[in-house]
Simulated assay, not measured.
Amino acid sequence: MSARGLVSGKAVGTVLKLDDPLSFWGGFDSAGGKVIDRFHPQHGACLSGAILFMERGRGSSSGASVLAEAIRLGTAPAAIILLQEDAIIATGALVAQMLYGIDCPVVVIKDQAEWQRLSALPRLAVEAGADVVFLTPQA
């Protein structure tokens, strides 16, 4: 598997795949953990504690602060698995890790077929480090 950890950490949770990119700025409620973009296909979906699969982020650099706040509040995804690198998402998770000591690993999987296969699993454990990433199916 060709994967790279953008932000290190460990997480386990239910897999949730978004059909479209999401902007955390204006598209996500950090207080409630839900998608609030009324035009998003998963409007109303709760991301809290999920292993979130999305191809990429969308939108404003302010999304990093929204994600960091959600991580602090415990309403963020447990981990985020991307198909394309996203500096805004990585920054939000890294800031939360540095300021609050809370991990939300961010991983990029370079192979679309592998990303699709993993996004179809019901549960996943994520362990992302500087040199290695483990994505393990869970019962």
Rank of each mutant, 00 (worst) to 15 (best):
P77E: 03
P105F: 11
A128G: 02
V106L: 09
A130K: 11
F53K: 08
K34W: 06
V133G: 02
V107G: 05
I89F: 05
L67Y: 04
E69M: 06
S8A: 13
L118D: 05
G33E: 04
S23A: 11
Y100P: 13
G101A: 14
Q97W: 15
G5M: 08
V126S: 01
T91G: 12
V108H: 07
S62H: 14
P122I: 04
V15K: 01
L135H: 02
G33L: 03
S2P: 15
E85P: 12
L124R: 00
L16G: 02
L118N: 06
L94C: 11
G74Q: 13
C46W: 00
E127Q: 13
E127H: 08
I80M: 15
P105R: 09
D103G: 09
S61M: 14
S2Y: 10
V108D: 08
W115D: 11
V15D: 01
A79T: 03
S119L: 09
V7A: 14
A79L: 02
T136I: 03
D86G: 06
I109S: 09
G13W: 01
G74N: 13
D103W: 08
I36R: 00
V7E: 12
F53Q: 10
R56W: 12
T136Y: 00
A79Y: 01
A113V: 12
H43M: 02
G33R: 04
E85G: 12
M54G: 11
H40T: 04
R58I: 06
G101H: 09
L121P: 05
G101D: 14
H43V: 00
L82M: 11
A79R: 01
G33C: 06
G57F: 05
C46E: 02
V66E: 10
R58Q: 14
A64L: 12
V66Y: 04
F134A: 08
F24D: 03
T136P: 00
F39S: 12
A139Y: 12
G49P: 01
F39C: 14
V133K: 01
G59Y: 05
G32L: 13
